[in-house]
Design a protein around this nucleic acid. Structure first.
Lengths: 201, 201
DNA sequence: ACCTGAACACCGTTCAAGT
DNA sequence: ACCTGAACACCGTTCAAGT
């Protein structure tokens, strides 16, 4: 609600995709239609096609923008296990802020393929730290991303119980599983001593 | 193509869902519409609504039937690591036979929630064998299923490279990661000696 | 009980026309 | 260059009517 603002102004791709993202946030992927979007922008449906090839292209723009703007923790020098966990937490948080967007992104992984994306750069760096050999970085990072993606999807779709503390425990189990799994892959030391878990999010 | 057969016969839920599944196999989730399905069955679109509440209900029928008919390997007494791998292989194979169906199923996990399904029974049995304590079976099985689901989605959507041998290696990495991860969770022995991998599927 | 035709409220998109 | 109205080819679904 409360549209206006766009009276006489020439309609921007930026404006279109911002509004489109809001519609997705509010009503899921199904909540975004070209016609509703146009109505929201107080514009004829066909005007949109002057700024975007079609609906699919619009979704691609929104998703790849989100992927480029992913906010991930920088290298803070801590053990790779901690950094891997921090990366997973950040990815999870970003995905939960716009579930419908990430749902579409997970349906169209080609959008996120570019190995220069901060996501892959960060993951590669951490896996190198963990001792994963160079020729296996691609494969290992793909598998780990698939796992985290699966977890995010399961959580988004309500696979998990209501109790948020239980969700937190599930997340913890997932991260521990991945971490031990990577240790197993590389035959590394079973990790430095970890406090019983007192983080908050 | 080649429909016929249903001339005068009274139109069955079985017939409807079989044809619907075929349409999904051929054209993805988007390839199934109530109107196309009716045309395929040589029937008025509205006739379908006499056997099924709506499209969503039809998809639910197809998916839960598939879930109930999942063909999984029986307990053969081998080490849990091998059985876990065999389970993942079987799940993967089933999913790849009807990608669109499983895609919908993964979007609606409530369809697969019933803990009496052979999928969960089998997974619980294997995790017990692995030493996962009873109160953590639910959580652990949910996480593992989310992981495998994520891998299947990534593969289905073409996340992975073309080379089928590379896909096979990715699958292998995923399974090893999961197995070592579970070992890490339970603090179990790092597994009995395994031959270098000579299976064929 | 089972099927149907017409109709309603939506879609995405093309095309020719307007300024 | 940017926007628009009318139109096309689709959707899922309701409802009143047929046998």
């Amino acid at each position: 609600m409360a549209v206006s603002a766009r009276r006489g102004a020439p309609l921007t791709l930026e404006e279109i995709s911002t509004t489109a993202l809001r519609l997705m946030d509010e009503g899921g992927v199904a909540g975004l239609s070209m016609r509703k979007l146009a109505a929201e922008l107080d514009v004829n449906p066909m005007s949109l096609y002057h700024h975007v090839d079609n609906k699919e292209a619009l979704l691609r723009v929104i998703c790849s923008t989100a992927a480029q703007r992913l906010e991930l923790p920088p290298d803070d020098g801590s053990p790779w296990q901690d950094q891997l966990r921090a990366l997973a937490v950040a990815y999870h948080r970003n995905a939960m802020e716009h579930p419908a967007l990430w749902s579409h992104l997970h349906d169209h992984p080609e959008i996120i393929q570019d190995r220069d994306l901060v996501l892959w750069r960060t993951l590669y760096r951490i896996l190198r730290l963990a001792g994963v050999p160079e020729p296996e970085l691609r494969r290992t990072s793909d598998v780990l991303h698939a796992f985290v993606m699966g977890f995010v999807i399961a959580e988004t779709k309500g696979h998990l119980p209501d109790d948020p503390e239980e969700v937190e425990r599930g997340f913890d189990t997932a991260i521990r599983l991945i971490t031990r799994g990577v240790e197993g892959l590389t035959g590394l030391s079973p990790r430095p001593p970890t406090p019983p878990r007192t983080s908050q999010g």
